[in-house]
Design a protein around this nucleic acid. Structure first.
Lengths: 208, 208
DNA sequence: TAGATTGTTAATCGATTAACAATC
DNA sequence: TAGATTGTTAATCGATTAACAATC
């Protein structure tokens, strides 16, 4: 169990967790780093090093106890502490994210969506309401919201981010293709789909 | 103009391109690496190094010619050669991606969506049809499709990927939370939203 | 005991940053 | 000429991989 874990490692931890959870419970009580590595196309040394950051260690010749490993990953990643989020911009991508069930697996709960299109008000997306932007402030205060998900057009991104920060949100997950600036106290993750795509196209081009 | 460009650099190139395109055309014909860096919160040396991989160079005291830089980035990233794609799994996320206009900016054209839910057949999503899975093979052959976008449930991901590879698709953009294995000749990019989220939650946790 | 597997230390690889010379 | 800016070389930083000792 280490304290300083690199971002690269943290990125892989949820992948291990997801994989371990997907294993049939009956099969085996333990698993080796080599088995995990080959299932995920990682190197086995890397898996061992990564797991060392959350686990007390495996046993030579046996490997790691699956149940224990899952518990430690869950605890390290904090997936059992609910992260309440709101989503701003309930267009198509926003609605798709509100519907997506995979987030609960990692403790994210999108409580509501906000928009300024009156046609959307009152709609329920996967049992979550879409509310007018004017109610955002009261809602955040009332529900202990710590994260904002931005699915607004690029030109609105900075303004909305500023508002979220002012209202006390501590993390912003930005799906708009705009760079946003926030204070140091707030964490931002940019999910630039168009940029990811460009990387894929380039690699495709190079393979030809 | 270099030949060996690192993946880290390639990831940033579309960001430069997007930013340069967003500049008002009247303003300035040139821009310095320092200006770009501060707008995107990058280091100025990094910007200069990145731009050196695509450009012939800027001029001391002046900077880079915006129009020229855009043209070189476009050409390097190959955004003007259309990449024809199909999307498999026209559920909510799939439909959201079919609607998204930002991809065209980087040369991706999603021609059609495929699904095995008859209720969706014949639907038009942003003027693109949803077709039955059974027509996939003929469609790919007829339209020169080089890329497949996977928005199917995790348990179907590998099977669908195998099919796409067999039908000659060269690149797969995988949005399902499953690890897929493909031959070396095919490029895969995994877009694991749940995993990205876990990183953000962890960083949030650490800031507290 | 032999063999599989873990975990650590050292070596390698790659990317970022710092320092500085070149140039308009 | 002075100053801003580029671009390159060297130094630093960080992550991955290789080698190997420890252990069940």
């Amino acid at each position: 169990m280490k304290t300083d874990v690199s971002v690269s490692t943290i990125k892989r931890l949820p992948i291990y967790l997801h994989y371990l959870r997907s294993l049939p419970k009956e099969e085996h009580a333990t698993i080796s780093a080599t088995q995990i590595a080959s299932a995920l196309s990682f190197g086995d040394v890397q898996v061992r090093k990564d797991l060392a950051s959350v686990s007390d260690g495996g046993k030579p010749k046996v490997g790691y106890e699956v149940k224990d490993l899952i518990a430690r990953l869950e605890s390290y990643l904090g997936v059992n502490e609910e992260n309440n989020a709101v989503l701003i911009g309930a267009g198509r991508l926003g609605q798709a994210l509100m519907h997506y069930r995979g987030f609960a697996e990692f403790g994210l709960e999108i409580l509501a969506g906000f928009d300024n299109n009156p046609k959307l008000f009152g709609m329920q997306i996967g049992s979550k309401p879409i509310l007018p932007f004017s109610e955002l402030e009261a809602y955040i205060a009332a529900h202990g919201v710590v994260m904002g998900i931005l699915t607004v057009p690029a030109h609105q991104a900075q303004t909305v981010a500023d508002t979220l920060v002012k209202l006390g949100v501590r993390a912003i997950w930005n799906f708009s293709p705009a760079h946003i600036v926030v204070p140091d106290t707030v964490v931002v993750k940019n999910e630039n789909l168009a940029a990811s795509l460009a990387v894929l196209s380039k690699q495709l081009q190079q393979k030809k």
